[in-house]
């Protein structure tokens, strides 16, 4: 039983990331009808928002520390971050320590800005073009964004740790009455899951309980009619794109302590997220979330040593296998509406 819970938990953090990215992809596809291959890049940019903020916070100037000397006996120069000057040393240190969570505040406006610029500057012109063209132009954009990040941050992963307070692990084993240490789970992954749940809940609440959300949902169900009602769909589309970008970005910010960000992480996740969207049902928000968690958990179970011994490599292909089976037997996915792109 303990192994079961352990694998379940292990699947949750990856599942959360899949769900968040797939949610954004679906928002864009459902409202705008656009297949966005650059969505993974938004996830990646979010992660690099965290890197950027922690670099800004650690921007330092050198001061001479009279109390210490280097090996030649000269007074030692030490780097002092500017935040120390502003907030004092202990406060400054904890601000730096909390760089990743603080990046949320930093990433929201940045991501919304990027999303809006993307939609107004590029995507808008592709609403009426074939899906293949949308895939191609956003694929090109993904390459460009990825290369810009690579140019400024280099090709190597950049470790971006979680705050000190969250570095440990939680012993679920002891809590649930199994052997202590049988199920240990890093704090940060718990945080990530809770965070994902909040964001997902927030997006659904936003769509459910605001007028804006109602129009958007109506638009997802029947775009033409809503357009005919004379409701300004354009502006709402732009806002939706910004929102989806922010969701992807925040997913990226919070993922940094789990996996050190690198420039190609977006594409790695994108390929899988597409598969998730398809499994969930193109255009279905609950489907995207459900499929994200399901596939994350499935992947985690498939990675168990006992499973791999029987079916070698199954962990690497399970998601694709499920997607192929779903697409062939139930093309509308787990929760897709009938008739949506069943061809």
């Amino acid at each position: 039983m303990d192994w079961f819970i352990l694998q379940l938990l292990n699947g949750l953090d990856k599942g959360s990331a899949y769900a968040l990215i797939a949610l954004g992809l679906t928002l864009i596809f459902g409202t705008l009808g656009v297949v966005n291959f650059a969505h993974g890049a938004l996830f990646m940019i979010g992660a690099f928002c965290a890197v950027t903020l922690s670099r800004i916070l650690t921007l330092s100037h050198q001061v001479v520390d009279e109390t210490k000397t280097d090996f030649l006996g000269n007074p030692l120069k030490v780097d002092v971050p500017y935040v120390y000057d502003i907030f004092g040393e202990s406060m400054g240190a904890s601000i730096i320590d909390w760089a990743v969570p603080l990046s949320i505040l930093f990433a929201i406006p940045v991501m919304i800005g990027i999303g809006v610029i993307m939609e107004r500057g590029l995507i808008k012109h592709f609403y009426k073009r074939p899906h293949a063209d949308q895939i191609l132009v956003t694929f090109g954009l993904a390459i460009v964004l990825q290369e810009i990040i690579k140019y400024y941050f280099g090709a190597n992963p950049i470790p971006t740790p979680a705050p000190e307070a969250f570095t440990g692990s939680f012993d679920f084993g002891a809590l649930l009455g199994f052997d202590p240490g049988s199920i240990i789970y890093p704090y940060w992954r718990i945080i990530y899951f809770i965070f994902a749940a909040i964001i997902i809940g927030g997006v659904f609440a936003f769509l459910q309980f605001t007028t804006f959300g109602m129009v958007v949902r109506a638009g997802m169900a029947d775009r033409e009619t809503v357009g005919l009602l004379g409701i300004n769909i354009d502006r709402r589309f732009t806002i939706m794109f910004g929102l989806a970008a922010a969701v992807a970005g925040l997913a990226g910010v919070m993922y940094t302590p789990i996996n050190s960000p690198n420039y190609h992480m977006g594409m790695d996740f994108l390929v899988l997220s597409f598969v998730v969207v398809v499994v969930g049902g193109m255009g279905s928000l609950p489907g995207a979330v459900l499929a994200g968690f399901l596939l994350g958990i499935l992947e985690s179970f498939a990675s168990m040593r006992e499973v791999i011994e029987i079916l070698p490599g199954i962990n690497q292909v399970i998601i694709y296998l499920v997607a192929i089976i779903i697409l062939l037997t139930r093309p509308r996915g787990l929760m897709g509406r009938k008739g949506v792109m069943e061809d």
Binding site: H131, V278, P312, G313, Q316, Y320, L327, L328, P331, M341
Partner: peptide
């Protein structure tokens, strides 16, 4: 080819990534 449009693209992508994963590990 039982699907078209973006579904076809994703299916082919999934098959290729599966082949890659298989060549990389199992095989």
């Amino acid at each position: 080819l039982r699907r078209s449009g973006i579904y076809f693209s994703i299916l082919t992508l999934a098959f290729a990534m599966m082949s890659y994963a298989l060549a990389y590990s199992v095989l």
